[in-house]
Amino acid sequence: MQTTLTADVPPLNDPGVTLLSTDQAALLELLDTVPTLRCSWGEPGDTGLSTNVSVVSADQADTVRESLNTAGFGCESQGDATICRIEQRGVSLDDKPYTRGETQAVQGSYWITTSWVNIDPDGYTQDILAALAR
Protein backbone atom coordinates (compact mmCIF):
# COMPACT_ATOMS: atom_id res chain seq x y z
CA MET A 1 0.00 0.00 0.00
CA GLN A 2 2.82 2.41 0.86
CA THR A 3 4.37 1.91 -2.59
CA THR A 4 1.02 2.65 -4.26
CA LEU A 5 0.39 5.78 -2.21
CA THR A 6 3.95 7.05 -2.66
CA ALA A 7 3.47 6.75 -6.43
CA ASP A 8 -0.13 8.00 -6.65
CA VAL A 9 -0.49 10.71 -3.99
CA PRO A 10 2.80 11.81 -2.41
CA PRO A 11 4.03 12.94 0.01
CA LEU A 12 3.39 11.28 3.34
CA ASN A 13 2.52 13.73 6.14
CA ASP A 14 2.85 17.06 4.32
CA PRO A 15 2.65 19.64 7.14
CA GLY A 16 0.28 21.81 5.06
CA VAL A 17 -2.48 19.17 4.91
CA THR A 18 -5.30 20.14 7.26
CA LEU A 19 -7.91 17.62 6.09
CA LEU A 20 -9.63 16.06 9.09
CA SER A 21 -10.12 12.30 9.14
CA THR A 22 -13.87 12.73 9.74
CA ASP A 23 -16.50 15.45 9.39
CA GLN A 24 -18.75 13.89 12.04
CA ALA A 25 -18.88 16.40 14.94
CA ALA A 26 -19.53 13.86 17.71
CA LEU A 27 -16.70 11.68 16.45
CA LEU A 28 -14.30 14.63 16.24
CA GLU A 29 -14.98 15.24 19.93
CA LEU A 30 -14.20 11.60 20.68
CA LEU A 31 -10.97 11.77 18.65
CA ASP A 32 -9.78 14.56 20.94
CA THR A 33 -10.00 12.25 23.97
CA VAL A 34 -8.42 8.97 22.79
CA PRO A 35 -4.83 7.96 21.93
CA THR A 36 -4.44 8.62 18.20
CA LEU A 37 -1.83 8.35 15.45
CA ARG A 38 -2.46 10.55 12.39
CA CYS A 39 -1.05 10.40 8.88
CA SER A 40 -1.92 12.04 5.59
CA TRP A 41 -1.09 11.50 1.95
CA GLY A 42 -0.91 14.26 -0.63
CA GLU A 43 -0.27 17.98 -0.66
CA PRO A 44 -2.80 20.69 0.14
CA GLY A 45 -5.09 20.77 -2.88
CA ASP A 46 -7.58 18.68 -4.80
CA THR A 47 -6.38 15.14 -3.97
CA GLY A 48 -5.41 13.48 -0.72
CA LEU A 49 -6.42 11.54 2.33
CA SER A 50 -6.09 11.81 6.08
CA THR A 51 -6.20 8.87 8.47
CA ASN A 52 -6.32 8.50 12.24
CA VAL A 53 -5.76 5.20 14.02
CA SER A 54 -7.12 5.42 17.56
CA VAL A 55 -7.48 3.17 20.57
CA VAL A 56 -11.01 3.06 22.01
CA SER A 57 -12.88 1.23 24.75
CA ALA A 58 -15.71 -1.17 23.95
CA ASP A 59 -18.27 1.51 24.88
CA GLN A 60 -16.53 4.07 22.65
CA ALA A 61 -16.46 1.56 19.78
CA ASP A 62 -20.22 1.06 20.19
CA THR A 63 -20.69 4.85 20.15
CA VAL A 64 -18.71 5.08 16.91
CA ARG A 65 -20.81 2.38 15.21
CA GLU A 66 -24.08 3.97 16.37
CA SER A 67 -22.97 7.44 15.22
CA LEU A 68 -22.01 6.16 11.78
CA ASN A 69 -25.30 4.31 11.32
CA THR A 70 -27.24 7.41 12.40
CA ALA A 71 -25.21 9.60 10.00
CA GLY A 72 -26.17 7.41 7.02
CA PHE A 73 -22.92 5.51 6.53
CA GLY A 74 -23.21 2.13 4.85
CA CYS A 75 -21.72 -0.42 7.24
CA GLU A 76 -20.75 -4.05 6.78
CA SER A 77 -18.92 -6.70 8.74
CA GLN A 78 -15.62 -7.99 7.41
CA GLY A 79 -14.29 -10.66 9.74
CA ASP A 80 -14.30 -9.14 13.20
CA ALA A 81 -14.27 -5.57 11.86
CA THR A 82 -17.13 -3.23 11.06
CA ILE A 83 -16.29 -1.04 8.05
CA CYS A 84 -18.48 1.96 7.24
CA ARG A 85 -18.38 4.21 4.17
CA ILE A 86 -20.00 7.32 2.82
CA GLU A 87 -19.28 9.10 -0.47
CA GLN A 88 -20.31 12.38 -2.05
CA ARG A 89 -19.85 13.71 -5.56
CA GLY A 90 -20.11 17.36 -6.49
CA VAL A 91 -18.67 20.32 -8.33
CA SER A 92 -16.40 22.83 -6.60
CA LEU A 93 -16.87 26.60 -6.74
CA ASP A 94 -14.31 26.71 -9.56
CA ASP A 95 -16.35 24.15 -11.56
CA LYS A 96 -14.11 21.14 -10.90
CA PRO A 97 -15.90 17.82 -10.28
CA TYR A 98 -14.84 16.01 -7.12
CA THR A 99 -15.52 12.88 -5.14
CA ARG A 100 -14.98 12.87 -1.39
CA GLY A 101 -15.85 10.50 1.36
CA GLU A 102 -15.01 8.75 4.56
CA THR A 103 -14.18 5.19 5.43
CA GLN A 104 -14.22 4.18 9.07
CA ALA A 105 -13.53 0.86 10.73
CA VAL A 106 -13.83 -0.53 14.22
CA GLN A 107 -12.02 -3.73 15.10
CA GLY A 108 -11.49 -4.69 18.72
CA SER A 109 -10.00 -1.65 20.44
CA TYR A 110 -8.95 0.01 17.16
CA TRP A 111 -10.89 2.73 15.37
CA ILE A 112 -9.66 3.87 11.96
CA THR A 113 -11.01 7.06 10.41
CA THR A 114 -10.10 8.15 6.89
CA SER A 115 -11.37 11.13 4.96
CA TRP A 116 -10.40 11.31 1.30
CA VAL A 117 -10.76 13.65 -1.67
CA ASN A 118 -10.49 12.35 -5.25
CA ILE A 119 -8.58 9.23 -4.16
CA ASP A 120 -9.98 6.17 -2.42
CA PRO A 121 -7.31 3.46 -2.60
CA ASP A 122 -8.82 0.01 -2.88
CA GLY A 123 -8.01 -2.04 0.22
CA TYR A 124 -6.50 0.89 2.18
CA THR A 125 -8.50 0.40 5.39
CA GLN A 126 -8.21 -3.39 5.17
CA ASP A 127 -4.43 -3.02 4.83
CA ILE A 128 -4.31 -0.95 8.04
CA LEU A 129 -6.49 -3.49 9.85
CA ALA A 130 -4.18 -6.31 8.71
CA ALA A 131 -1.11 -4.41 9.93
CA LEU A 132 -2.72 -3.86 13.33
CA ALA A 133 -3.54 -7.56 13.64
CA ARG A 134 0.11 -8.56 13.29
Rank of each mutant, 00 (worst) to 15 (best):
T113A: 15
S77K: 13
N69Y: 03
Y110G: 03
R89Y: 01
N69V: 08
K96I: 00
S77E: 14
E76I: 02
I86M: 06
Q107A: 11
T103C: 06
N69Q: 15
I83R: 03
T70N: 09
G101E: 12
I119F: 05
W111F: 10
A71N: 04
N118D: 09
D94H: 12
W111D: 06
D80A: 15
A105I: 05
G108A: 14
A71R: 04
I112G: 07
I83M: 02
I112H: 11
E87P: 00
G101M: 06
K96G: 00
S115I: 00
R89P: 00
Y110C: 09
Q88T: 10
K96P: 00
I86E: 07
A71V: 05
S115G: 11
F73L: 08
I83L: 11
T113H: 05
R85I: 03
R85Q: 12
R85A: 08
T113L: 12
G108W: 12
Y110W: 07
D95I: 05
I83K: 01
Q78E: 11
I86V: 06
Y98H: 03
R89H: 05
W116H: 14
A81C: 03
V117A: 12
C84I: 11
E76Y: 07
I83C: 00
Q88V: 02
N118G: 12
G72A: 07
P97E: 07
E102R: 06
G108V: 09
L93E: 12
A71D: 10
N69L: 07
C75F: 07
W111Y: 14
T103L: 05
D94A: 06
L93T: 11
N69T: 14
Y110H: 15
G108P: 08
K96R: 10
D95N: 09
G72P: 12
G90A: 03
I119D: 13
I86Y: 04
F73V: 09
G72I: 12
Q78Y: 08
C84R: 00
R85T: 13
Y98T: 07
D94C: 02
G74D: 15
V106A: 08
T114E: 13
D94R: 03
N118C: 08
G72Q: 08
T70S: 09
G79M: 10
V91T: 15
A105Y: 09
T99S: 13
G90H: 05
V106M: 11
C84H: 02
L93R: 06
Q78R: 14
D95P: 01
G108L: 13
Y98C: 06
G101L: 04
Y98G: 07
R89M: 01
Q78L: 10
Q107L: 05
R85L: 06
Q78G: 03
I112K: 10
G101C: 08
S92K: 00
K96F: 00
R100Y: 01
G79A: 08
I119A: 11
A71T: 10
I119T: 15
Q107M: 10
N118M: 13
T113C: 07
R85G: 03
D80V: 02
